Amino acid sequence: MDVLSDQLARARARGAVFSTLRRTAPWGLGFTGRRPLTAHILLDGTAWLTAARAEPVRLGAGDVVLATAGEPYRLVSGIGADAETITDARRRGSDHGPGPASHILCGAYVVEGSVGRSLLESLPRFARIPAPAQSPRHRNAIGLLAAEAGTHGSGQQVLLDRLLDLNLVYALRDWWQRDEDRAPGWYRALAHPGLAQVIRSVHERPELRWTLQTMADAAAMSRAGFAATFKEVVGQSPGAYLTELRMGHAEDALLRTDATLASVAAGVGYRNEFAFATAFRRTHGLPPGRWRTAHRQATAGREAGDHAS
């Protein structure tokens, strides 16, 4: 199993608001900073990333920035340039006049649940992956995204969304390779052969009756050695990791399906609905039924706001 793909799919990483804009200098785009995760790709030209309490960062062609939620920030052609809001910029569309131009692609993501929080916590406010630090495949993906962004055809929006998802996978992987200490524990564990086997196995079949012994056997390690190594690398005990994983799968099932609580409980490894409800309430502060209702209502409200903006 590709654990990164599994985590991103369950975190609901997808293009919620997408824009590709050409701007001739002087130009500026202003962002509220309220969205959980936004990707910016400078397809060509140059720009500056500025925020009130951060040093300006110069961006070159091909650079990628992942911005997490925080204070407002700007992408500008030069420090001090006026900026229009991204909402107004999307309404106005691209500039087509002569002069020094930059081509900026922005995609805001929906990132929900415990898995989404884990991904966001692994990133600083602004994670810049400069073009020279990107893997060859990442650069190729950006090139394909740039080529598609400059054309018009049927199904283009869906294709651009999928390519934006691909950029997120590569950007996270490139960033975590540069800053391994900030990478999620499960990602660090994938570099350890024994732990990697366990991580992949429990992600693929979280409903199995996993014990410390069965996980140690899967890693081909002693119980004591496995428990100590797992906690050192991942940052939590095997049992705590398994519970967190199961709760993440449960969140996913509760939000995206109409499965009964008994079915959800069985699907994530609990022998009955009562045991599942007890564990879920201990983690989330609400019983699963009430949590499902509250979060579905909140999600519907956010998505309505996205479509209206």
Score class of each variant (00 low, 15 high):
Gly285Phe: 03
Leu123Gly: 01
Leu21Pro: 07
Leu163Gln: 01
Lys231Ile: 15
Ala89Val: 03
Phe274Asn: 12
Val198Asp: 02
Gly150Leu: 03
Thr257Arg: 07
Ser118Glu: 15
Gly194Cys: 05
Glu204Thr: 13
Arg128Phe: 13
Asp88Ile: 12
Gly305Asp: 14
Met221Val: 11
Ala224His: 15
Asp161Pro: 10
Val111His: 00
Val158Ala: 14
Ala228Gln: 15
Ala54Glu: 14
His152Gly: 13
Arg188Asn: 07
His138Val: 05
Ser201Lys: 07
Glu121Trp: 07
Arg205His: 11
Gly107Glu: 12
Pro56Cys: 08
Thr211Pro: 02
Gln213Ile: 07
Asp95Glu: 09
Ile104Trp: 05
Leu49Phe: 09
Gly93Leu: 05
Ala294Cys: 09
His203Arg: 04
Leu190Met: 10
Glu180Asp: 09
Pro98Arg: 08
Arg22His: 12
Ala47Ser: 07
Asp181Asn: 14
Glu55Leu: 12
Gly60Leu: 04
Ser102Leu: 01
Pro26Gln: 11
Trp291Ile: 09
Ala127Val: 04
His152Asn: 15
Thr38Trp: 03
Ser19Tyr: 08
Ala266His: 10
Ser94Pro: 06
Thr50His: 08
Ser102Ile: 01
Pro288Lys: 02
His138Gln: 10
Ser19Leu: 09
Thr46Glu: 04
Tyr109Leu: 09
Glu148Gln: 13
Arg58Glu: 10
Ala149Met: 02
Thr87His: 13
Tyr73Glu: 05
Met247Asn: 01
Gly235Ile: 09
Ala52Arg: 15
Leu160Arg: 05
Leu163Asp: 00
Asn272Met: 04
Arg34Phe: 12
Val264Lys: 01
Ser94Asp: 04
Gln134Lys: 00
Gly269Cys: 02
Arg162Asn: 15
Thr32Ile: 14
His249Val: 05
Leu172Gln: 02
Leu286Gln: 11
Pro26Ile: 11
Trp186Ala: 07
Asp63Ser: 01
Arg162Val: 15
Thr38Val: 11
Leu120Gly: 00
Gly28Met: 04
Ala69Leu: 00
Asp2Phe: 08
Ala279Asp: 05
Glu207Phe: 05
Gly225Tyr: 06
Ile41Pro: 03
Gly15Glu: 03
Gly70Ser: 08
Ala259Cys: 06
Trp176Glu: 07
Pro206Met: 00
Ala149Phe: 00
Gly70Asn: 07
Met221Asp: 11
Glu121Ala: 14
Leu255Asn: 03
Gly45Asn: 00
Met247Asp: 04
Leu255His: 06
His192Ser: 13
Arg292Asn: 05
Ala220Met: 11
Trp175Pro: 00
Thr85Glu: 01
His192Thr: 13
Asp95Lys: 02
Thr293Phe: 12
Lys231Arg: 15
Pro124Tyr: 03
Asp306His: 13
Leu208Lys: 07
Arg205Tyr: 11
Arg223Val: 14
Arg23Glu: 04
Ser201Val: 04
Asp6Met: 14
Gly248His: 02
Gly289Trp: 01
Leu212Pro: 08
Leu166Tyr: 06
Phe274Ala: 13
Ala266Arg: 08
Ala250Gln: 03
Leu105Thr: 12
Ala266Tyr: 06
His203Gly: 04
Arg35Gly: 10
Arg256Lys: 12
Gly62Ile: 00
Gln134Arg: 04
Met221Glu: 13
Thr278Gln: 15
Leu190Lys: 05
Ile142Cys: 06
Leu21Ala: 07
His284Asp: 10
Asn140Met: 15
Gly93Ala: 11
Ser201Ile: 06
Thr50Cys: 14
Leu163Asn: 02
Leu29Gly: 06
Val264Arg: 01
Glu303Lys: 09
Gly269Pro: 00
Ile104Ser: 05
Asp174Ile: 02
